[in-house]
Nucleic acid binder design. Structure first.
Lengths: 212, 212
DNA sequence: CCCCCATTTAACCAAACGGTTAAACTAACT
DNA sequence: AGTTAGTTTAACCGTTTGGTTAAATGGGGG
């Protein structure tokens, strides 16, 4: 990862591709538009990264690396499983807010059954599922948590986080319709509710009242 | 909705379009492929329904009507709010399983910020958000539930349901990688966990142990 | 038997798309 | 100045795509 002008161009390209893929999806994204957004000639995409599929894989790999880092850091904290679960949920919500492209791309991949996922990328995703799962198992052995399915529980948390984060833009469209419903939610709101909900949902013992 | 041969053809077209849109998304879907799947000439799509956008709106409208029916039926049941919440969650999971195209299309719409949603369709979606919200408010007034944000709670449940249901096909791709992780989950598993999780997450009082 | 109208078909089209290429530019090194 | 290797550019190309159309089909009523 030398700081050459070439690698800088590559970063700009991958960054632009990430935004366009998040906005339009793999099939909806236009290679010309990615080039325009990156401020480079279209041929540069093929020179520095590769074809559209390679571009997509580069975006996924780049974004997933960030998620992995944040997740590893959060789950490595000390303390009871309940506190660590809160930390991990906070980290998931936080990272997903700091890379808003990522959840949108992921939602589409879930929808398509991973049609555009390179095997290496898919392997990375599966690895992360075990993080919350392991945490739940620990908490259960310590008597903190009830016996819930770890994989489904993890997926519920992640699914809700992706969903809640990505639905915000719909608020603008909803506002145009003059609806009274306010869909907006700040990062802290989402992390708070999800952590709260998950903790109560999973805990063996009742927790003290509302944290809202 | 007369049972004319024309309306029958229209149904086949909308059904085929639903499957293709779910599989490939709006941009990935090919009009010729929809026609082939429906077993009709491509021009028939334009004759009976309209252009690609009209086709998409027809699919959304058709699927959303089914969801609305099931949701209305489930929330109209009698009993305490907790039981009704379980019923609604069961209905959401159930309908989403019986129309598997729907959650996949919805996930993509969330990801794109509703780029392809006709205003009328968007209005329908917003209306349904209030169902769980109203239920939570009731339960809260009756002292059954804690004070959680109704909109975010609803979206969490729906998001988790869509996500859990749609992630199943990824299991096949994951299996090709030889991973030990089993992502598959039956409808009853999902409904059970989600209902259990939500109830514990929302309840004011501790519930009796595991239901798994 | 013929006409009418809804339905269906095959052929067609312009635009948009992903991808390629030969030539031009740049700067470092000899 | 000349050479080389990395980078950038504009123009180009074959294919695919959503959409159209004129002609054909076919059955029910006069």
């Amino acid at each position: 990862m030398a700081d050459t002008p070439s690698s800088h161009t590559r970063e700009r390209i991958v960054g632009a591709a990430s935004a366009i893929f998040a906005d339009k999806g793999f099939d909806g994204a236009r290679v010309d538009e990615i080039a325009r957004r990156a401020g480079v000639n279209k041929a540069m995409l093929y020179y520095h990264v590769g074809d559209k599929q390679a571009l997509y894989t580069a975006v996924l790999t780049h974004n997933l690396e960030r998620v992995e880092e944040a997740l590893a850091a959060a789950s490595a904290t000390e303390g009871p499983a309940s506190a660590r679960l809160q930390a991990v949920i906070g980290a998931i919500v936080g990272i997903v807010h700091s890379i808003p492209d990522h959840p949108r791309i992921m939602l589409r991949e879930i929808a398509s059954g991973g049609a555009n996922l390179a095997p290496e990328v898919l392997r990375r995703m599966l690895g992360m599922i075990e993080v919350v799962g392991g945490l739940l198992a620990e908490g259960r052995e310590a008597g903190e948590f009830r016996d819930t399915d770890p994989v489904l529980t993890h997926l519920s948390i992640v699914g809700a986080a992706l969903f809640l984060t990505s639905i915000n833009p719909l608020r603008e469209r909803a506002a145009e319709l003059g609806t009274a419903l306010d869909l907006s939610a700040a990062e802290t709101d989402i992390a708070g509710l999800l952590g709260d909900l998950a903790l109560h949902g999973v805990s063996a013992e009742p927790r003290k009242g509302n944290e809202k």
